[in-house]
Design a protein around this nucleic acid. Structure first.
Lengths: 349, 349
DNA sequence: GGCCGTCCATCGCAATAAAGTATTGGACTC
DNA sequence: GAGTCCAATACTTTATTGCGATGGACGGCC
């Protein structure tokens, strides 16, 4: 059991401000070895997998454990089994190794073509704040890169994404996750916009029936057919027949129509309101608009993995929405079966 | 310019499933070197700092650049300046090196004492969902670790945190950030709870005057003196004189009093309501309750850095709140000058 | 119980990779 | 034109890794 304390002939440790900490014993190659051993179960098998001699691998791990004072594996007969400490280490090993790959790819891209500009599509339904957060993240990660946001309607954006004319796109769900992946970035409640002097304004939540025949839908089927359909489905599910009206994006038009008592309207909770108007949730449902970033799995944009990784940090995942939902990891929950509806499913545990 | 392509004597590359990718050339030591060179400006200085010979460092970087086909530095007279590609790499180098330290520390701790249990304080003001998200994160990172949530009033929790009897604490702001650090986890709007048949329920927002003399405050100065003070300040700032009442935590008591027309009350937007009650925001202000996790800067809990890192991902930072706020990084914005008030300062850019 | 196979640890030795020392050469300064 | 600073290179030394072989521990099998 020799201690592999690096013994440079002449005094090291004193020179500069860098006393060679113990952490330096851990290198990426060790992480690779750990993953291999954990997955193969024996040093012998792991050694062949990572093209190393069995003896070398055995030494490597023993010395690492020794230097770090960690026992990573338990030596049973018949192989190595990972310890609790090793289990946590393994988790990070995988993460770090993947990050290394992503970083190298991205940096190579920056160098080679001074990196291809990141083409980010977005639809009119995406809040400006979301777009700028994404752009900020990108510029923060790649100061010399460039990001080109381009807008378009949902179908067009998705089509261009699929055709690799975009590297990623900010869209609102639902979209068919066909040929691309989705990572959610924000959820925003849908509420009903009514006049303050509307009789129903006295209530904190509007019963679904009260909307029947009054609620106008302004979403344009051409701009986001799936969301439009989904919305109609959801309304139908609550027994609400929407009023027919001409599609528009213009929030002021919508509010004007409500003010003129021509209808009431579904809008986002965060939308700034005219002073005569107010909003109310619909009783018993918890509809939200979900924004997500979509990207091709087989992307050729080297900046993408790191951008996604960073966005995960920047955007909400735990929803501080009225009534608690079970906290979930972003990667598991995304799905386009919500325009969204939350409705009854609060408090599943 | 020899190519340092690792030439194992006998054919490697074919053995297992691990064809030795180019990414393997990048090791943590390279990241250290890159950071050192970038900070020192010359190879010579960097070499002494990281206890390496100048020649070794020069070669190391040259071979790395060569293997990865990246130019990281520009060789000027008088030193090395970093390239755009290097700039991005540098960013990740720092991040990864820090993560390595955090990981090793945490894993060491797991091994040594099978890891000291994580003592997480929380106050009655913290939503259960927040606590369980934190606990989930911990257990996810350290499957064999244990986390002990303990509740207490704010002052007690802070005191025990400072006395190192707790490793971290979930508290609501404001707290004096004295001797410890704070990372926000959630913001939740405060709204006024009123009866549905209250005349003011017809309005979507309540003017501040309408609360005068009617709004009862149930927060207990003993449980969170600073928040209590702050709340009174905020009310005073709006010209609201609160009604005196006995402190209570029990939300049902509060709602019962509102139902009995004894008062109206400030509550969290997400609180489940009795069917006779509703909530309204106060006009012109945007008060929120901010939950944060507090911890000593000189912690001895090795799990803490990785937990904080993970929580950053799990919790909202971009606030999908009514009216956009500028997106900010979590670490910069925390401060206890909000109980919080948002009020006029929306849309600062 | 004895035999065999598997697997990990260890050792000696050889080959390679990495770091050290010393030197060179360019560029800039005075 | 000598001095200085710096990176790069030549050459030497050290450290790491590979290879092959051995031993111990365990379990299965006859």
């Amino acid at each position: 059991m020799k201690i592999p304390l690096r013994q440079h002939h002449r005094s090291i440790e004193f020179r500069g401000a860098c006393p060679m900490s113990v952490y330096d014993y851990l290198e990426f190659k060790h992480l690779k070895s750990i993953v291999a051993i954990a997955e193969e179960g024996t040093i012998t098998a792991a050694a062949t997998r990572i093209a190393l001699a069995q003896s070398a691998l055995s030494r490597q791990i023993n010395e690492l454990e020794d230097a770090l004072h960690i026992q990573i594996f338990e030596r049973d007969r018949g192989g190595m089994t990972i310890t609790p400490a090793g289990e946590s280490l393994l988790r990070f090993a995988r993460e770090l190794l993947q990050t290394r790959i992503d970083v190298v790819k991205a940096v190579q891209a920056i160098h080679q073509a001074t990196m291809r500009p990141f083409r980010l599509g977005f639809t009119p339904f995406i809040e400006h704040q979301v777009i700028s957060t994404v752009c900020d993240a990108y510029r923060d990660l790649f100061p010399k890169g460039s990001i080109h946001p381009e807008n378009g309607d949902t179908e067009g954006v998705i089509k261009r994404l699929r055709a690799a004319e975009l590297d990623a796109a900010l869209v609102t769900l639902p979209v068919l996750p066909d040929g691309y992946c989705i990572q959610p970035v924000m959820h925003e409640p849908l509420v009903v916009c009514i006049r303050k002097d509307d009789p129903f304004a006295a209530q904190s939540e509007l019963p679904a029936e009260s909307l029947n025949g009054r609620l106008a839908i302004f979403s344009d089927p051409r701009h986001h057919p799936r969301a439009h359909e989904r919305l109609l489905e959801m309304l139908e599910g609550q027994g609400i027949k929407p009023k027919i009206s001409n599609p528009t994006f213009n929030s002021e038009h919508v509010q004007w129509m409500v003010r003129e008592r021509l209808c009431i309207a579904l809008i986002r909770q965060s939308e700034p309101l005219h002073e005569d108007l107010t909003t109310r949730p619909i009783e018993g449902v918890n509809w939200t608009i979900d924004s997500a970033i979509a990207y091709r799995e087989e992307h050729d944009q080297e900046a993408l993995p790191l951008l996604l990784r960073d966005l995960e940090k920047r955007f909400s995942v735990a929803e501080p929405r009225p009534h608690k939902k079970p906290p979930q990891r972003a990667t598991e929950r995304q799905e386009q079966q919500r325009l969204s509806f939350g409705g009854q499913n609060n408090k599943s545990s």
